[in-house]
Simulated scan of single mutants.
Amino acid sequence: MADSPSNPARRRFLTGAASAVGAVGVGFAAVPFLSSFQPSAKAEAAGAPVDVNIGKLSPGQMTTVSWRGKPVYVVHRTDRMLESLADVEDKLRDPESAKVTQQPDFAVNRFRAREENERFLVIVGLCTHLGCAPTYRPEVAPDDLGEDWKGGFFCPCHGSKFDMSGRVYRGVPAPTNLEVPQYVYASEDIITVGGTEEESA
């Protein structure tokens, strides 16, 4: 009979259907298990380190990542950008990075960067005036910023200006330099924002 339980075709169909339903169930059960290996949004907001691949970042380019809910700018500075740092120091409010809360000890230098690679600038992209996001303005002497502009960061909210090391100019609303977060080189091409020397060893 066609509907007999001993019908081989029907048995194969029921076995296949049961296997498919079981596979879907296993898939649904695996999703939360596998996602537990990823850092949660809460962990990232609390400061979980973030890796940035700088291997494909061309000279002059900037990339942005999120760390602790803040934008972090990573800039591959050119020779011209590095040379401009000395040229603007007489126009800056804190050229020596004397405000200790704005950077780790390793960044108290003209480049505000680790000695391993001073070309890469890593800064929190929030203006120290009211927290707007400064725009990256690498061009020299644009019409809207004047012939003395050597490149840097400009806050469109209230006009604060920062050089290519994130150091604040005098006479603008922002009181301090842009913040440099803790970071390490995990490898030649990877910067870990929020990482420590112990983790990179």
Rank of each mutant, 00 (worst) to 15 (best):
G151V: 04
V88Y: 09
G131S: 07
F111M: 10
V124H: 01
F154S: 13
D148S: 14
A174Q: 04
T196M: 04
P104F: 07
V124T: 13
D144P: 02
C132Q: 04
Y183Q: 03
E147H: 07
E89N: 13
D87C: 00
E197L: 12
Q182H: 07
R170N: 13
Y185K: 00
L85V: 12
S84A: 15
I123T: 09
G171R: 12
G195V: 04
M81K: 00
P156Q: 10
G171M: 08
L145W: 09
G131C: 07
P181I: 07
S187R: 01
R119Y: 05
G125Q: 08
H129C: 07
N109V: 09
S160C: 09
M81P: 00
Q102G: 13
R137S: 12
E118V: 14
C155G: 07
E198A: 15
K161R: 15
L121Y: 02
A186G: 00
E96F: 11
D148L: 11
L178Q: 03
D189S: 13
I123M: 11
G166K: 04
A113T: 12
H129L: 06
G146A: 07
R119K: 14
S165K: 03
F162G: 05
P95R: 10
R93Y: 08
L130V: 14
T128F: 01
P175H: 10
V108S: 11
L145Q: 10
L145A: 08
W149C: 06
